[in-house]
């Protein structure tokens, strides 16, 4: 059986302590800059905060993984190198990277610290994953959310590193690390600035009938009726009118969250080493609730008991959940 480590999000020091106390095996977090893909206002850690967080986590047997999972623009790589230097100095247990240059720097400078390949690298074939393992010593790959469990099982047989899969949270299906939709509207890059739908460009407008419009950079990307559940203001989950669908429809994805709580035994059997919970942008309340639920479920499965999975629907985007491609590639 794989280790089935629980990898949990932390957007703030308080959220990190909450995740640790709720039973995380490892917590992932980032600095307050473009070096990570949740570079949101008021979120993330200063170096001093990360130092305290590492001390808190290690004292309780929890690992700290530092996300450096964005792509440095040409001429700006020093910010990523400096972040890696700081993380290494503070004693993080692994770096989560996407860019080959960042991976190469860390592999050469800090060969004793584990490298995990971020989902932002979009490595989904054994050939691509093996390349990162052979050239940068990557120890774990975070797989994109586009693979079925049989595909994951097959990949596991053909690669020399551990596999981490998302089990809860954002159901992101774009080719991650390549999506430029936000950049197209706002001029800011998800992959280089770390901001998908930057809050400074988001506006919610309430209409007289109680409907709400989500706008990004002045463009309406969805309109929710008075009783309709809402989602994040991301272009990929917007609802658009087209000549063949004048009533408007979800052209790419829809507001829905991934929830693989019922597939945990199969994922473990397929050789998944670690389960990732998405949501560094979410609150302590979310972290506490989701981590506790999956901690209990994983412990039950490891003990040979049937997992009693808590109902997490209230925390899902649009209050809808899916097993996505993990169940079938025909989920939509």
């Amino acid at each position: 059986m794989s280790l089935a480590e629980l990898i949990c999000p932390a957007g703030t020091p308080a959220a990190l302590r909450t995740a640790v106390d709720a039973g995380a095996d490892a917590v992932y977090c980032g600095f307050q800059d473009a070096t990570n893909a949740r570079n949101f206002p008021g979120l993330n850690f200063t170096p001093d905060e990360l130092a305290e967080a590492v001390t808190y986590a290690h004292a309780r047997g929890t690992k700290v993984l530092l996300a450096l999972n964005t792509y440095p623009p040409a001429g700006k790589v020093d910010l990523w190198r400096h972040a890696a230097d700081t993380g290494a100095r503070l004693g993080v247990d692994a770096f989560i990277v996407a860019d080959m240059g960042v991976a190469d720097y860390i592999a050469r400078m800090y060969p004793g610290i584990r490298l995990h390949l971020s989902v932002q690298a979009a490595a989904s074939s054994p050939e691509a994953i093996r390349y990162y393992c052979e050239n940068f010593g990557v120890k774990r790959v975070v797989l994109p959310r586009i693979l079925t469990i049989p595909e994951i099982r097959q990949i596991r047989r053909e690669i020399p590193c551990e596999i981490e899969t998302f089990i809860f949270g954002n159901h992101g299906l774009m080719v991650e690390g390549r999506c430029s939709l936000t950049n197209y509207l706002t001029g800011q890059s998800t992959n280089m600035d770390g901001v998908c739908s930057p809050a400074s460009d988001v506006e919610y407008v309430r209409d007289a009938d109680g409907s709400m419009s989500s706008q990004l950079a002045g463009f309406t990307i969805d309109r929710f009726g008075p009783e309709e559940k809402a989602g994040y203001p991301t272009i990929c989950k917007g609802r658009y009118a087209a000549p063949h669908r004048p009533e408007g429809y979800y052209a790419f994805e829809e507001p829905i969250s991934l929830n693989l709580s019922r597939l945990l035994p199969e994922l473990i059997e397929a050789g998944v080493h670690a389960f990732k919970i998405e949501g560094r942008q979410r609150s302590k309340s979310y972290v506490r609730g989701v981590v506790r639920a999956f901690r209990a479920a994983v412990d039950d499965i490891k003990a040979g008991r049937e997992a009693n999975i808590a109902d997490l629907i209230a925390l899902t985007e649009g209050q809808k959940q899916t097993q996505g491609a993990f169940e079938t590639k025909k989920w939509r």
Binding site: A14, E203, Y204, V205, R206, M212, F224, P226, E227, E228, K229, A230, G231, Y232, P255, Q281, R282, S283, K284, S285, Y286, G289, A314, L315, T316, E317, G318, Q319
Partner: peptide
């Protein structure tokens, strides 16, 4: 932090402008 702000937003119990 007894409730999650995003969840309250999704359910339309919380409104921001």
């Amino acid at each position: 932090a007894e409730q999650d702000g995003d969840a309250a937003f999704f359910s339309r119990d919380l409104e921001i402008s």
